[in-house]
Design a protein around this nucleic acid. Sequence first.
DNA 1: TTGTAAGCGTTATCAC
DNA 2: GTGATAACGCTTACAA
Lengths: 330, 330
Amino acid sequence: MAKRVTAEDVARSAGVSKWTVIRAFTPGASIAEKSRLRVLEAAENLNYRPNLLARSLATNLTHQVAILIDDFKNPHKLPVLEILTWQLQSEGLLTVLININEHFDHVQALLDAGQRQVDAIILFGTAFRPEMLEDDRIQGGAPLYVLARDSQIPNVPAITCDTPLAMRELCEYFSSKGYRRPAFLSGAKTLSTALGRRRAFNAFWEAHSSKPVLGVSAASYSSGHGFEAARILFQETPREQWPDLLMCENDALAFGAIDYVRSTLKLRIPDDIAIAGFDNTPLAASPAYDLTTYEQPAIEMVAAILSMILGREPRENRAFKGKLVSRSTA
Amino acid sequence: MAKRVTAEDVARSAGVSKWTVIRAFTPGASIAEKSRLRVLEAAENLNYRPNLLARSLATNLTHQVAILIDDFKNPHKLPVLEILTWQLQSEGLLTVLININEHFDHVQALLDAGQRQVDAIILFGTAFRPEMLEDDRIQGGAPLYVLARDSQIPNVPAITCDTPLAMRELCEYFSSKGYRRPAFLSGAKTLSTALGRRRAFNAFWEAHSSKPVLGVSAASYSSGHGFEAARILFQETPREQWPDLLMCENDALAFGAIDYVRSTLKLRIPDDIAIAGFDNTPLAASPAYDLTTYEQPAIEMVAAILSMILGREPRENRAFKGKLVSRSTA
DNA sequence: TTGTAAGCGTTATCAC
DNA sequence: GTGATAACGCTTACAA
């Protein structure tokens, strides 16, 4: 491998000092147009590129943002990842994607990201123990942000879709359509409470009737577990008490529930039972499901985090209004 | 923000030189057990973590791998991303995810990754112009790898699923089931030829009959465009020549084709027409589609790239055998 | 406008 | 086994 070309090499070739070379690559630096051109030409010839690593060491800025993610089963992650990478790149930031799992936990990831001096860390929809983030030894590194999950940790802004508002919109829609026996299918316990969707859903119906809302919890946010959870719900509920509306905590769960209800129970949707999801996954639009769901304003949410990272806005919790997407399942 | 703790601070606190501190953090370095413990304790107290950035600058190794990806519409990307991040992390490597699009092309991404001194760059299923990668000025940086796409660029290993083998398996399966009027629905032109699936599919049928194989091309690898392409195929083909088998270049396209065939044409699958995909996306298993498809050995493929990155295996093209997943659509 | 010196926090290498 | 010197390639003063 050929030795890397450094600013010094370019300087030699252009007959100036290396600092002049640096200036030529620093927007707004005071440098004579003539020398700037000479440097640029020499750089072009030698195929010189500034070493961002060295720059980072000197400036204490890596222009890298770590994104921690733990649920690759959820198809919703992909479009949001696209938005995240794209918006970050638009501002000259690069994404370091960290996979959280049983073998690589938040603490490791946070420390790792911290040691690598990333400028910010985004916890994207991951399930974590709040105590962990409050630990200074861990938080010490880069500023933390929580995306698409509630959190009340001091100095860790949570950027979310406005859940109470969303659930109210959904419930009023369901209510206006005449559904009266609601049930809620939630996902993994740890994350579920943090989302607050079930709470808001139940609150609405309990305010409108005295009956308790049926509920069941899936092992994870996957279609398979949604299927399984739906099975449990219907098997454990006497037929005459079956719900006429099943709100699922996200689309993935809803897909599984639809599969179960349609292929095993042979019920008609939405005539026998209405089903709704949350996230407006790409597949929700497909005729095979045509799922009524709720879309999070991912672009705005990511933009808000970005503004905070760039210091253009104060670092504080933000909740954005999403949008009900009415299709044929409810 | 408190000033970072450096090795020097720890040295002062432990009453040794900073080099001894470094040694305590370098596995296998020659250091007295006693001083090692003393250093570790001081480090613990001060909450010291080695600065990986500085280390990278000195060692010329960042332990970061860039992954270039351009098709976030394809649900198959997510599970592979999970495998990639996970396997890389197992070896102490972190993933830099770069989103390629109209505004941020391969050249920019490659240069960017190069300037950031990543140890390797993986082009994951992206459509690129081979000439570009052959340009030394661009290739100059980190070693390149191409994942899930053919390529014959010198010094750029392509790690793929064995396409000819896969298509032969699929075609023999179709043939044994009695299908005789095959059609192929391919995706975006640029990438499609690189995958070689259509070529292998056509070759099989042309060797077994004299009739040409029907074909249509979608604008991209999304369900929506699959739907659209299916519409064009059936509308432009006289009914008596309609295929009895539609092989789609990937699952996303197949989902779209199924939607069209089922909801618009009201055909029965597989009785009226068989449909198959490629990738074995999570959703392919759902009862709503129950798609016959072909699974790429993603874990092995990623492992192979990793071995090459780590220098445990020679850098060369590899093709792995995948697995036919027989479900109800074909 | 340009050159110089010092520093970012490590690692490599040599002397003790 | 430990301390010291130089180096990685850049930036940020400051001086010329």
